[in-house]
Amino acid sequence: MQVDSDPDWSALLIRVRDHEDKAAFALLFRHFAPRIKAFLRKSGASDTLAEECAQEVMATVWHKAHLFDPSRASVATWVFTIARNRRIDALRKARRPEPEDLPWGPEAEPEQSEALELRQETARLGEALRQLPEKQRALIERAYFGDLSHTEIADETGLPLGTIKSRIRLALERLRHQMS
């Protein structure tokens, strides 16, 4: 299980949140900023724009750290949602309507055990993704990173739209199976 070998990104982000800890932020930056940059490059951003957006996303991570809840999302998931929204804004000049926040429940502090459970589940998901057959994983990656609709992927790969949809469906079923 990866939980023990991966740095505890949640603990680092909570140090940023509670103590404005620049050393903790630097570790998060070193891991996530290059990945955000690559994500934006794959979506068609120039090198300069991707670099600038990655810096902006990481600055947002700092400013919004007080909204991070380790029992609801992993740091990687949370960073992904910020990077995705920045991409929509930068590349499409469009807004992204977001669902209404759920009202806060009675418990002020999230349960430690929930955060741990979420970390373990996230590690299993990462492992399950790595073990997908190459063709399925590549399509899922394209669907998330390529800024391409399924129809556009069909045009580019020459695969019929039905094949792409069924491969993605197979991949999702396999993930579900591995997670259950």
Binding site: P34, R35, E51, A76, L129, R130, E141, F145
Partner: peptide, 18 residues
């Protein structure tokens, strides 16, 4: 689905920052 996006980002190869 957001968690899948997060895992893909986490497992991806980065491009060095300046």
């Amino acid at each position: 689905y957001d968690a899948i996006g997060g895992s893909l980002l986490d497992g991806s190869v980065g491009i060095p920052m300046t």
